[in-house]
Design a binder for these strands. Structure first.
Length: 930
RNA sequence: GCUCGAAUGGUGGAAUGGUAGACACGAGGGACUUAAAAUCCCUUGGCUAUUGCAGCUGUGCGGGUUCGAGUCCCGCUUCGAGCACCA
């Protein structure tokens, strides 16, 4: 019987659908296991072989867990909102929903061919009103909540309103955009609008005037993770900084919890590190400097409080609100000119041009410790969005301050013994402090001389706190997430405006569906596309929000919805949340480290505070599958001719390398006829061959159409079958590792599957006939070795070495001519996660009427693995070896005696004395001589 | 600049501190065949030897710990990733 993979795979894919093999329900008798893939954005290009890598890895794990008796949830869906569909709509006028549906259908078709164990009954799409109703609902809850720092959790905003009514802001410790102070009476005296405006300062979803990344070409704002080096991630357009009134999520309130949570989850260290960097916790001191001749105070943040005696100037960010107040009339023109100049620069220009610039404000601050007068400067090297937007500059110990001081000829005052600041600043946090002001100066009791930097920081903190000059403060780099997008293809906000203030639509009105519009561009007046919608207002006639939510809105809590995807009453029922808890294994790329994986954790923590999610962290274990890169092939055209020269001969000619479609190249050998008909200009191409073949060059590049290196999984499935594709993708190397796709080795895996098949059927046999006798010691050893190896490997995602083990075992059993059911049947179960179609077919042939998915994973028995004898390698001083075999259970003493008595050993030891004999069980006897 | 990770044959990659290079590809040789495909067998890190046994060397570089280091420690080099006027 031939291994007819096409027939087998079609047959089982059909049966799985008919039998609902992968449907999963909340079975309380079984332990749950939740496997999840980062759901894809269905792009128009379809899947290439890189996309399924993670899906295959997680599918193997899901199938394995199921065989181990777990109730496995393994869902799939689509992150369906996205820019490409919208831009396509702008170009063609086709509704993005149509493009998206078409792309999803194509994705589904491709996915189905690979044989995943997804429960498609639970499919979700972020653009489906059934789904985004709950995205809108979550937004409403955030709007209705504030973050209490004492309880370290989100609380209903009604509590805060009550507190304002009783005590104003007295005794409040809550997350806010800026510190406000008012009394209960003042609160009550506020107008409705003013109260609403005030609450915005505290809501977790709030409308705020913030500095945003504005991308003029895309006509929308972008979140920090959507901007890299001043360019938009999508499209690569320049991004400028601009203050806009935008919806924001107070992610910063959760900064500490996001940081702490990292210690409780099983992610790679590098990914955790990336998140820690992004959160950017920094512990320092906030100090207040009085301004000379003014009651304004300058609040600064520093991690180097110890350098307070080395402050020789202050710097404000150009965007700081204090700039206007502190600029003296004499300096006004100069300052205005400077502000104008910096404002025009894009983020990218600022990054590219790091030359020192700045302007003196005309004002002076008073050093609170020494009473010294310090000039206040304005410069764009200080960022408005971090700390207080103002710094105390210590040029001797900060390289940026140093550059500034050198440029403007300001004083540089070193504070560390023996440091040389004539050429550069001394930034290291080490050394002994010196140059503290003499006793009797206004600095009073603080003398840091003789302390280490660490001690000095602590001493200064203590002094500053005790004397009411400042406080210990923790700052985070993590900013609130900007949540508005001036685009069409996204979730509408369930918000309407009354007197310019936003109010929520009643929950019963959800979902607020995305309206139809005639064109997908912004309006002529620059409003977002939704402003084109007819009747975009409430029943009462209030206008609805015209921005939509960003891509991460729909992807932030989708894992919860999979637990209960058709629930009309709630995001998910408490019962289902209790059963499925959180994701046990999440598989996806690292590119989401500072986007989706932060937002999701934030979103889940918020829902956890509400009692909707039952776990603080959404993704317990995370595996980052590597990217599959393209492996491009090249042909070499001799300049100004239509002649192509083979790779190893090209050095003799002046050639131009040209990308060639990898699909007409096999093992780097070009199919000449296919090449000629590939493109008209090559129809009469000539070749300079080596050994009658044309060898192509190759390089690793991104997989993309323009490099002609895209490999389509459909073609691989067609040629080799889904099981071969699955196993080959895993055999390529560790799942976590990025690697180029190279079809060259796929024959080896395919050959293995055929051998595996032949193990059962034999050659030419039409019926499967296996004997019922028990396996021989050798056969059982081979089997149990495999069980042990595969079980251990799957747990650690070392699928590539598992597959090697399968190959070895298959070869062993083949050469043993093993035809015994007792040995071969467990093999089918073992291979089921990897090659499910093949396993099902064999399982059926073995006489089972149920799916192999419902079989039981075999256990191994050490008994069969035990050796009778063990061959030891005996070496002397680690040099040279000879081998000797001992009974496996021989005592160390006996081995020692045997070694000493051995003739060859005695020759070695002649004239030397034995210092010690080291016996490593089952491996090595090392005799140390002198 | 800071943080993290990596470096092993022609290629992808294996190796709880214990015989480095499993497994696979590719390459070379052979069997079967009129021939090809398919299949099977042998060789395959390098150097030396090959009349037989074999010997030396070898995991980016330089040190160290150890009876023994690809693996642990210290110092470099190169590559990759993240953060980056974050005070």
């Amino acid at each position: 019987m031939e291994y007819n993979f096409r027939e087998i795979e079609q047959k089982w894919q059909k049966r799985w659908v008919e039998r609902q093999t992968y449907r999963v329900t909340e079975n309380k008798d079984k332990q749950k296991f939740y496997v999840l893939n980062m759901f894809p954005y269905p792009s128009g290009a379809g899947l290439h072989v890189g996309h399924p890598l993670g899906y295959i890895a997680s599918d193997i794990y899901a199938r394995y867990k199921r065989l181990r008796g777990f109730n496995v949830l393994n869902p799939m869906g689509y992150d369906a909102y996205g820019l490409p569909a919208e831009q396509y709509a702008i170009q063609t006028g086709q509704h993005p929903a149509i493009t998206t549906d078409k792309n999803i259908a194509r994705y589904r078709e491709q996915l189905d061919k690979i044989g995943f164990s997804f429960d498609w009954n639970r499919e979700i799409r972020t653009c489906d009103p059934e789904y985004y109703q709950w995205t809108q609902w979550a937004f409403e809850q955030m709007f209705k909540s504030y973050y209490c720092n004492r309880a370290q959790k989100a609380r209903p905003i009604s509590e805060l309103i009550e507190a304002f009514g009783q005590n104003g802001t007295e005794g409040l410790d809550v997350a806010c955009s800026k510190e406000l102070t008012f009394t209960a009476a003042e609160w009550k005296a506020m107008s409705q609008n003013k109260q609403q405006e005030t609450l915005m300062n505290y809501r977790i979803a709030y409308l705020g005037n913030t500095m945003v990344n504005w991308c003029p070409q895309l006509g929308t704002v972008l979140a920090n993770d959507e901007v890299v080096e001043g360019l938009s991630v999508r499209g690569g357009y320049p991004v400028v900084q601009r203050v806009m009134r935008q919806w924001c999520l107070r992610v910063s309130a959760y900064a500490q919890r996001l940081l702490d949570g990292l210690d409780t989850i099983d992610w790679t260290d590098s990914l955790k590190e990336t998140q820690r960097n992004w959160i950017g916790r920094s512990e320092g001191t906030e100090m207040s400097f009085k301004v000379k001749g003014s009651d304004t105070e300058l609040l600064i943040f520093t991690t180097r409080a110890d350098t307070v005696f080395g402050v020789t100037f202050m710097v404000l960010a150009p965007e700081s609100a204090l700039v206007a107040r502190l600029t003296t009339p004499g300096q006004k023109n100069e300052v205005d000119a400077y502000l104008e100049r910096t404002r025009k620069r894009t983020e990218r220009e600022r990054i590219a041009d790091r030359s020192v610039s700045g302007v003196f404000s005309g004002s002076y601050a008073i050093n609170p410790l020494t009473g010294e007068e310090i000039p206040i400067w304005i410069s764009d090297y200080v960022l408005a969005g971090y700390g207080t937007g103002a710094i105390m500059a210590v040029p001797a110990h900060d390289s940026r301050d140093y550059a500034f001081a050198k440029h403007f000829n300001l004083e540089i005052r070193p504070l560390i013994e023996g440091c040389d600041v004539s050429e550069e600043s001394f930034d290291a946090k080490e050394g002994i402090m010196t140059n503290s002001p003499k006793a009797g100066s206004p600095a009073g009791g603080l003398n840091l001389n003789g302390l280490t930097v660490k001690e000095a920081i602590a001493a200064t903190k203590k002094y500053v706190t005790e004397n009411g000059l400042g406080r210990v403060k923790v700052n985070f780099r993590l900013r609130d997430a900007i949540f508005s997008r001036q685009r069409y293809w996204g979730e509408p906000f369930p918000v309407y405006y009354k007197d310019g203030m936003p109010y929520l639509l009643d929950e019963s009105k959800l979902p607020l569906e995305l309206p139809e519009i005639d064109k997908y561009l912004p309006t002529e007046t620059g409003e977002p596309p939704l402003a084109r919608a007819k009747n975009w207002k409430t029943e009462e006639g209030y206008p609805l929000e015209v921005c939509t939510m960003p891509g991460f809105a729909g992807s932030s809590a989708y894992y919860l919805r999979y637990m209960d995807p058709r629930n009309h009453e709630a995001l998910l029922s408490h019962e289902k949340a209790e059963y499925w808890q959180n994701v046990d294994l999440y598989v996806g790329g690292t590119e989401h480290a500072t986007g989706h994986l932060i937002y999701s954790r934030f979103w889940n923590k918020f829902l956890f505070d509400l009692g909707v999610s039952v776990k603080e962290e959404p993704f317990q274990k995370l595996v980052n599958q590597g990217m599959i890169q393209g492996r491009s092939n090249f042909v070499y055209r001799i300049k100004d001719t239509n002649t192509f020269v083979s790779y190893n001969l090209k050095k003799d000619y002046d050639v131009t390398p040209i990308h060639v479609d990898v699909n007409i190249v096999s093992n780097d050998i070009l199919d000449l006829e296919a090449f000629k008909s590939w493109r008209p200009e090559y129809a009469d191409a000539q070749f300079v061959l080596e050994d009658g073949k044309y060898i192509c060059g190759w390089a690793v590049e991104k997989m993309s159409k323009s490099m002609y290196n895209v490999v389509n999984p459909d073609l691989i499935v067609e040629k080799y079958g889904a099981d071969t594709l699955r196993m080959y993708e895993m055999f390529l190397g560790p799942v976590e590792q990025s690697k180029p796709w190279d079809t060259n080795g796929i024959d080896g895996v395919h050959r293995f599957l055929r051998k595996f098949w032949n193990l059962f059927w034999g050659k030419g046999a039409e019926a499967l006939q296996l004997s019922d006798e028990s396996g021989s010691a050798e056969e059982l050893k081979s089997l149990h070795k495999l069980i042990k190896k595969v079980t251990a490997d799957i747990e650690t995602f070392s699928y590539n070495t598992s597959i090697s083990a399968f190959m070895i075992c298959t070869n062993e059993l083949t050469s043993l001519k093993c035809r015994k059911r007792a040995v071969l049947e467990p093999l089918v179960v073992l291979i089921a996660p990897f090659a499910p179609h093949l396993a099902e077919e064999l399982w059926e042939a073995l006489g089972h009427t149920t799916s192999v998915c419902d079989a039981t994973w075999p256990e191994y028995d050490e008994h069969y693995l035990a050796e009778d004898t063990v061959s030891y390698t005996i070496s002397f001083n680690g040099k040279a070896r000879f081998q000797k075999t001992f009974p496996a259970d021989a005592a160390n003493d006996a081995i020692q005696q045997a070694v000493l008595a051995d003739e060859a050993a005695q020759k070695w030891m002649e004239g030397k004395s034995v210092v010690k004999i080291i016996i490593v069980p089952k491996k090595i006897v090392n005799v140390v001589l002198r």
